[in-house]
Simulated scan of single mutants.
Amino acid sequence: MTAADETIASLDHPVRPDADRLRHGAVIFAMLGEPTRLELLWLMTEGPQTVTALVDAVGASRTSVSQHLAKLRHAGVVDVVREGRTARYSLRGGHVERLVREGLNHADHVVSGEQPHG
């Protein structure tokens, strides 16, 4: 199997999910179920973000953004890389990015009235 085949294969996991996978999937969806967290995740689809950049973008308090980021990190949805006193938050993998983008693409269809497509 080539690296390209492995990348394509990783997009779909056709095995029926067991209880642990269903529980973790529900945790991820719960993290997406809060508008500020969803906006933070959407901002991270553009690349790693500092807390300051996220605070400025969403207009929430630093404390609130930090609490949301801690929940996202604890749920395994985001990673943090520290560079001195600066922390950069990023999405944990392509599955999370696709989930965020697809959820918001679906919302765009609902809000705009545009017909769904395949």
Rank of each mutant, 00 (worst) to 15 (best):
V77F: 00
A30S: 08
A53K: 11
G118E: 05
L43A: 10
D108R: 06
V65D: 00
A75V: 00
A60H: 13
M1L: 11
L22M: 11
S66I: 00
V51S: 02
N105R: 09
R37N: 11
T63N: 02
Y89H: 04
V80W: 04
P48S: 05
A75P: 02
A4D: 03
P48W: 03
L72V: 00
A19N: 06
T36M: 14
E102G: 08
F29E: 08
T36Y: 13
S10F: 02
V77Y: 01
G103M: 12
A30L: 11
T86S: 02
H95G: 05
L104E: 08
E114I: 14
T2I: 02
R37P: 12
L40A: 08
R101N: 04
E83H: 11
V15W: 14
A57K: 04
S61Q: 08
R82Q: 07
P17C: 11
R98I: 13
V77P: 01
T45R: 06
A19C: 06
A60F: 14
D56H: 15
R92V: 06
G94S: 10
G76E: 05
V96N: 03
R82H: 06
H68M: 00
F29D: 08
R62K: 12
G76F: 02
Q115F: 15
E114D: 07
T2G: 05
K71G: 01
T45C: 09
R98K: 11
Q115H: 12
R16I: 15
A30C: 08
E83W: 08
P116S: 04
V110S: 03
L40W: 12
V51T: 12
S61N: 06
G76M: 03
S112I: 11
L99H: 04
V96W: 03
V110Y: 03
R21K: 15
A70T: 12
L32N: 04
E114H: 10
L43V: 05
L38T: 09
V77D: 01
G84N: 00
P35G: 12
R92P: 05
L104P: 10
S66L: 01
L54N: 03
P35L: 15
D20G: 11
E34K: 13
V80I: 09
H106G: 03
T45W: 08
H117V: 13
L11E: 08
I28N: 02
L43S: 07
H117N: 07
A57I: 02
L43I: 10
L22S: 07
T63I: 02
V111L: 09
P17T: 11
A4N: 05
V80D: 03
V58F: 06
H95K: 14
L99S: 04
H13E: 15
P35E: 11
R101M: 06
